[in-house]
Design a binder for these strands. Structure first.
Lengths: 221, 221
DNA sequence: CCTGCCATCCCACATTGATGTTAGGCGGGC
DNA sequence: GCCCGCCTAACATCAATGTGGGATGGCAGG
């Protein structure tokens, strides 16, 4: 044994349709101490068939595969080998591709123009529990959260609901859960007739004519 | 001028309640060429009052501020100075804090045990359009996407709904929109009584006893 | 052929819901 | 003091819904 220092090389499998890029990546990886390119596949199906047996430490996946898209390939791979981390490689920094990949189960996301040393570092990082991303990608991911919070912060319930009085909102909440008037009366310790009165004013204010319509407005559809 | 080489230092403002940590950070920043600690605040309110005028290139924000929480401080800061990127600093790598911060508008998120050189690199990165995160943080963010996709993919509607007949599901859909039996009958070109029959079997299958309960099951709450 | 499931329809009856009208008590503001 | 909004409540009436019976024809499988 030459170098017992390298306890174990990180094994990498490639999925990349371009033969040139594939060869380059393979030689980069094999040419770096501590890394080993275990396999290289030109398409999704062959990767899916082989990888579960190979169990590489990391999969580098091109996103723009012909036939089966990289995102779809990731999704299937994660169902048959959930433990294998996948690092997406792509020329696109387009949000949609990023989110599709992440939701499909990718653990990291790098642009192809990432320099070689950063790529190797990212492979190391992904095996040690990280989630390497190019800075552009990270920015988009963060941006996504801020966009989502705008949506999530607005439970989308019709604004009229806010104009209801405290008591009316309580009644509406119970109404929307499907409670009968009698039950609502008991729960709020008020009379049956009072509940009916509230229901009427709620309907007036919400411009609806049935419990279900009110419920939908309350829930924001 | 001593060093015209440094075109312009990156100006940093700190929000950190611990005087010791604050002093350490300030001296680290001021002691590094190319960085300038513009201001250091012990709490949220003073930062909010001052920062819009100062316009630092980056704000380093402790998440655990007494009084006003760091996340809340970020939220307000972003409303009055949306362009100033905020880098959260915290001892917690707890998911909830991370997402609150990101949704509030933080651009990066580092753990306090991040080494000094990485911290400085992160500050540089954030000013050049990145979104620096500790690797643990990045992992959690990626994990979040995968969790969310599971939820988003499952409209969460009660599984019983799937056991309903085609026709029953059509009726239920209209029922859930608040249509009266008569309207449903007209829309589906069937008789009023037929609708009532469907409603009965739907209720039976969903184990409910009212339109609203059925609607809630249909909508997955 | 018989059985089961689906889609369709009808009758009857009790309950609940939707809507109109009216009204007393209470706390604020003008 | 008077008016207004909110919480409370009662009576009346009709429409809509919930629930119990059956019934017919079609179509797939055994």
């Amino acid at each position: 044994m030459k170098k017992p220092k390298v306890a174990k090389a990180i094994t990498v499998s490639l999925v990349e349709d371009d033969p040139g890029v594939r060869a380059n990546l393979a030689s980069l990886i094999d040419g770096t101490p501590g890394f080993k390119c275990q396999a290289a596949y030109p398409d999704g199906p062959s990767a899916l068939k082989d990888i579960p047996g190979n169990r590489p430490d990391v999969v580098l996946m091109d996103i723009n595969l012909p036939g089966m898209l990289g995102t779809e390939c990731v999704r299937r791979l994660k169902t048959i080998a959930p433990d294998v981390p996948v690092l997406m490689l792509t020329v696109y920094d387009d949000s949609e591709q990023i989110f599709k990949s992440l939701m499909a189960g990718a653990t990291g996301y790098l642009l192809k123009r990432t320099p070689k040393d950063k790529l190797l570092e990212a492979i190391r990082e992904i095996t040690s529990g990280g989630a390497p991303m190019s800075r552009q990608i990270a920015r988009r991911v963060v941006q996504y959260f801020q966009d989502v919070s705008q949506i999530a912060a607005t439970p989308q319930r019709a604004p009229e609901v806010e104009t209801l009085t405290e008591r009316e909102q309580q009644v509406l909440a119970l109404l929307a859960k499907g409670h009968a008037y009698k039950e609502i009366a008991d729960l709020l310790n008020i009379g049956f007739e009072t509940v009916r009165t509230y229901v009427r004013t709620i309907y007036d204010k919400l411009h609806v004519h049935s419990r279900t319509e009110a419920t939908l407005k309350y829930l924001g559809r």
